[in-house]
Simulated scan of single mutants.
Amino acid sequence: MIEVLRAGALTTVQDQGRPGYAHLGVPRSGALDPAALRLANRLVGNPETAAGLEITLTGCVLRFTRAATVALTGAEVDVRVDRRPGDVGRPLSLPAGAVLRIGPAHAGLRTWLAASGGIAVEPVLGSRATDTLSGLGPPPVRDGDRLPLGASAGPPAPADFTVAPAVPATLRLTLRPGPRQDWFTPAALDLLLTTPYAISPASNRVGARLVGAALPRAVAGELPSEGLVLGAVQVPPDGQPLIFLADHPTTGGYPVIGVVDEVTPLAQARPGTTVTFHGPQR
């Protein structure tokens, strides 16, 4: 069992999500950096599909009522096991009753925690992931929560350390135009591909909101609701683009000017981070 002494700004249970239900209005959800959570699980001997914690910016404090192996990946943070310092990117052995203190992120935004046995909350539609938009899965972790752990599946990985990628100051994202590019003036796509944008503080697990040049529309009004995919760049009436992330809605009525090939880098993008776009041919 994990006792949550301090949950931090936003800590959620996440796994690899619940794919295959978009036709029912259920997005995939899951870790914003699936590879980081898979790595943490491998380090502690879990299956890659095991649930862990996604910890946003401010860290958290957890007490383990049983002995466990844990691993942290993602943003670089200070780690302490009781009074002993620990490291990100390697297995850490915790005795029963140990308190794990995870500090604020030095760079980046999110850290993923895996514990031997995985977080064993009740699955919903085959996943234990918290979907912050629909409310499926467990609610965000709160102070005083007790999170069950499953049975350990195997020994921790024989790894001295792993190397986390550096967090870039500017994200350069590949954009595939469409499907509603025709709802915008010819200048709109040029603006999107030549103008830097900044991550807005209003961003969350649903989407990365951008601040920059407004994209002018050629067609007023809204579309009948149509399907949305991960990475869709939707443009609401204010002209400021929004990149949909793991907890995105599955339908929407604002036009989508393009789709980002790979959204994982946005998992570590703090407010103010510069974002630029380029076409798939560049």
Rank of each mutant, 00 (worst) to 15 (best):
V121K: 15
L192A: 06
R84C: 01
T194G: 15
A96Y: 10
L228S: 02
T274S: 15
Q181E: 15
A153N: 07
T12Q: 13
R18P: 11
W112L: 15
F244P: 02
G59D: 08
G117P: 05
P158R: 11
V99Q: 08
Q181C: 05
P158K: 04
V233K: 03
D190F: 02
V235F: 11
A232I: 02
P216C: 02
L245H: 07
Q281C: 00
A115C: 11
L149D: 01
V121H: 15
A114E: 13
L215S: 07
A107T: 14
G30F: 03
E262I: 03
H106F: 07
A98F: 08
A51G: 05
L191A: 09
G25T: 10
A51H: 06
D15P: 09
V211M: 00
L100Y: 10
A9K: 04
P95C: 03
T111F: 02
P201Q: 13
A166T: 09
V163S: 12
V211Q: 10
L228F: 00
P168W: 13
F161Q: 11
V81I: 15
L210S: 00
F277H: 05
G221Y: 06
R180E: 15
L192Y: 10
G252K: 05
T69W: 15
G59L: 11
A35S: 12
S200E: 03
T273G: 10
R176P: 00
G253W: 06
P148G: 04
G279S: 15
L189I: 14
P179R: 00
D247T: 08
A22P: 08
L193I: 07
V99I: 14
A40M: 04
G8R: 07
L57F: 15
T58K: 14
Y254Q: 09
I199P: 00
R6E: 09
G135Y: 08
T12W: 11
P237H: 09
L149G: 04
L10P: 01
A31W: 12
T12C: 14
A129Y: 03
D78M: 08
W183M: 01
T162K: 05
G89M: 07
T11N: 00
R180M: 06
W112T: 00
F64C: 10
V235D: 04
T162A: 12
A115S: 14
R90N: 04
G25Q: 03
A71L: 06
T11A: 08
R176H: 14
T276K: 07
L175K: 13
R42T: 09
A214I: 04
P158Q: 10
A22D: 14
R90E: 12
P265I: 09
R80F: 06
I199Q: 03
G59Y: 10
V206C: 01
Q268I: 00
R270S: 12
A40F: 03
G279F: 06
G52F: 05
D238E: 14
V229D: 12
A115Q: 11
A36Y: 09
L147C: 04
L57S: 13
P47E: 06
R28N: 14
P34A: 11
T276D: 01
L24G: 07
L193M: 11
L24Y: 03
T11L: 03
P19Y: 04
P19G: 09
R282E: 14
S127T: 12
A50I: 11
T195S: 12
G117C: 01
L175C: 12
G126D: 04
L228C: 05
G108D: 10
G74L: 05
P237M: 07
M1P: 14
P156F: 04
T195G: 02
A50V: 10
I243A: 02
G239K: 08
